[in-house]
């Protein structure tokens, strides 16, 4: 073979390889997108089209009825309820619960976790293995803490407040209770992620500030926090997504007053009157879209950060 022919052959192999690679990747992309596509298109179908054989790949007669039903306060009064499949739920209460619980718990976790990460990074608080131990809390299966928490919230806290404060305060089925729990379970993530951001800030910046006479808190406020601000946004969004999707603990610790969005979706799923595929698809879409957007926003940082510093040199 002459070099030119060999080169052309190599080029062909390379091209074939590239085509094959893209074919595999596009194939997986299709698998990824399919359930999401199915949910979104179902959310625009009316009840007659939810289940047909063969299934309709796109809504024949696109409608916003599902969204109307989900977003209407009083389904009966507004007349958007369906005869056979009437449901008392609307999304507003759960939406408010989810937004409040997730943002408050993520904010508190963010601030506590950031300060602890700072202390771990700068003063080695808790020793060298502490940062690994922190992850332990996260690895405990939620079912194992669900039972104790239920009794704690429903029995022990009311009992304690009654004896100590003379008022009965229950954390069961309250936003406070769920928020406190979410703060705790997301803290390990905040600590772990913020550690990696804080360790990128050179110590000497703080030393310089201290030498110029700045106090601890002033240094933290003027030097460290501005430099890790973008990291804090990423971390906030990450734990927000975690809390937003949490199901088991919310299911355990709430009913009937408070219900987060996953719990609401589950109520539809287990409804006895027959499945409401359309409104469920609408709720699913409403739950999914904001977090997927948040996820795409922080994805660059995730790719960088998920080797846990094991590969960094």
């Amino acid at each position: 073979m002459t070099p030119a022919v060999a080169g052309r052959a190599a080029g062909r192999t390379r091209r074939r390889r590239t085509v094959l690679r893209h074919a595999v990747l596009i194939g997986w992309g299709a698998i990824i997108m399919f359930p999401i596509y199915w949910m979104i298109q179902t959310s625009f179908k009316d009840s007659g089209e939810w289940v047909t054989w063969p299934p309709n790949w796109l809504p024949q007669d696109p409608t916003l009825k599902n969204y109307e039903q989900v977003f209407t306060f009083d389904v009966q009064a507004a007349g958007v309820a369906r005869e056979a499949t009437e449901q008392p739920f609307n999304i507003w209460g759960s939406l408010l619960d989810s937004v409040l619980i997730c943002s408050i718990s993520s904010l508190i976790a963010l601030f506590m976790g950031t300060f602890l990460a700072y202390a771990i990074s700068r003063f080695n608080v808790g020793g060298s293995t502490f940062r690994h131990m922190v992850l332990l809390v996260r690895m405990i299966p939620p079912i194992v803490i669900a039972i104790p928490l239920l009794m704690y919230y429903a029995i022990m806290v009311p009992f304690a407040t009654e004896t100590l404060l003379d008022t009965r305060i229950s954390l069961f089925d309250t936003r406070t209770g769920v928020s406190a729990l979410y703060t705790t379970v997301t803290l390990p993530f905040v600590i772990w992620m913020m550690l990696s951001f804080i360790e990128e800030v050179p110590y000497t910046l703080e030393h310089a500030a201290r030498l110029m006479g700045a106090g601890r808190i002033y240094t933290l406020r003027k030097i460290v926090l501005p430099l890790v601000a973008s990291g804090m946004v990423v971390t906030f969004l990450f734990v927000f997504i975690l809390s937003w999707g949490e199901f088991l603990l919310a299911l355990t610790l709430t009913h009937p007053d408070v219900s987060t969005l996953p719990v609401l979706l589950n109520k539809y799923q287990s409804a006895s009157e027959g499945r409401l595929y359309g409104p469920q698809a609408a709720i699913g879409t409403v739950i999914t879209v904001p977090v997927v957007i948040m996820g795409i926003l922080i994805q660059k940082h995730l790719v960088k950060g998920f080797s846990f510093g094991m590969m960094r040199r």
Binding site: T204, L205, H207, A208, A209, L211, G213, I223
Partner: peptide, 17 residues
């Protein structure tokens, strides 16, 4: 405290904010 000694210091990596 470092800040109360009335010193000026230039660091290896300069430590500019």
């Amino acid at each position: 405290e470092a800040g109360e000694r009335g010193l000026g210091m230039v660091f290896q990596d300069l430590a500019l904010f």
